[in-house]
Amino acid sequence: VGAGPGGMQAALSADRRGHRVTLYEQEKKVGGNMRRAAIPSFKQEVQRLFDYYKHKIMDSSVEVQLGTFANINLLEGGDYQVIVVAVGGHTAMPCIDGLETVDAMEAPKILERGTVSGENIAIIGGGLVGCEVGWYLRQQGKSVLVIDKVSKEQLMPKEHPTNKAVLLSRLQKAGVELLTETNVCQINGGQLKLGLANGSDETRSVDQVVIATGFAPRRHLWERLHNSHLDQTAEIFRVGDCRRPGRFFEAINEGALVGNN
């Protein structure tokens, strides 16, 4: 359940071993966040990885059901012996006073949508996704502010130092403003009250707030399965971000391990 990198790899590995595999995806395209991550023009390696999996799935015997929400009722009617939950994660929304007063967008969805309304954009979260979306929007001529509570040295701790340096250099050259050691204390409509590193406060006016504060596992289906009779009739596994948010290759390795065993 879920056609991101982990789900596709699990399906392909099981298919190669001769199992009858159905792959459910509630979106109308495969790829999940890997597809979205490949959109910025400098992400050619991710694009090649996505293209590889898309074509491998198309050339396999896996039955792909796109635009299908695999709920408990559907799975109970399928007589499945093994269920692999690979539904990914969701944006971990920060606890900010007044966040509900704005129509904040989740960063990955911007890549899918292509742009945002307004010219002055504030991105809360300076991790890999936040910085890439900041660069992407700056290429469209938007004025972009990326805010994170950690220091510049602590940004993107899981990234290779060279990759991190290249991305930060891209942001600087593009004119993206990066505010580190800064807290978003309050949001009131288009007004952001910031707590700066020097202890002072500052208010910024923005047209759009973007949330890029990381991912949390989607646990709902996993929990529902274990509270249903399927827990007794099928082996149930989970891979990728719905187990523990991580990198694409971690999800792929987990999918291969489940599919091959």
Rank of each mutant, 00 (worst) to 15 (best):
S117L: 10
L66N: 05
K109D: 06
G134L: 10
I123K: 01
G134V: 09
N120R: 14
W135G: 04
M58C: 08
V102G: 12
G89E: 08
R17M: 05
M93P: 08
G89C: 15
K109V: 08
M105C: 11
R35G: 04
E27H: 05
G88M: 14
L75E: 03
L66Q: 07
P94Q: 09
A107S: 07
E27K: 12
V30R: 00
Q65M: 10
V116R: 14
A122I: 06
I121Y: 01
R20H: 00
E45G: 11
Q65Y: 09
R16A: 15
V21G: 02
Q65R: 15
E100N: 10
Y24F: 13
D97Y: 13
T68P: 04
L75F: 07
L99S: 09
H55Y: 03
M58S: 11
Q44V: 03
I110N: 11
E63K: 15
A14R: 09
V46L: 11
V87F: 00
E119R: 07
M58G: 03
K43E: 07
V85F: 13
E27C: 05
R113C: 11
C131D: 15
A104G: 00
V87M: 01
R48I: 03
N120M: 01
W135S: 11
Y80T: 05
Y52G: 01
V85E: 07
E106N: 13
W135Y: 15
I39V: 14
Y80R: 14
D103P: 09
T68Q: 04
E100I: 08
R16F: 00
G114D: 10
I121L: 06
Y80I: 06
I96H: 09
I57N: 09
V87N: 07
V46S: 01
K28D: 10
V64F: 01
Y52F: 11
Q81G: 15
I96C: 10
E119W: 04
G67D: 05
I39W: 01
G77N: 15
D79T: 05
D59K: 12
G98K: 04
S41V: 11
T115F: 15
G125Y: 02
T115A: 10
L128T: 14
V129N: 05
L99C: 05
L23C: 01
P94L: 14
T115P: 03
G130K: 10
K29C: 02
S117A: 06
H55F: 11
F42P: 04
G88R: 05
E119Q: 10
E76Q: 02
E132H: 09
T68L: 02
E63P: 06
M58R: 15
I39C: 02
I123M: 13
L74A: 03
S60N: 12
V102N: 06
M34A: 11
T22E: 08
R17Q: 14
E27G: 07
S13H: 06
V133G: 04
K28R: 15
K29A: 02
A122E: 00
G88F: 00
I83D: 02
D79A: 10
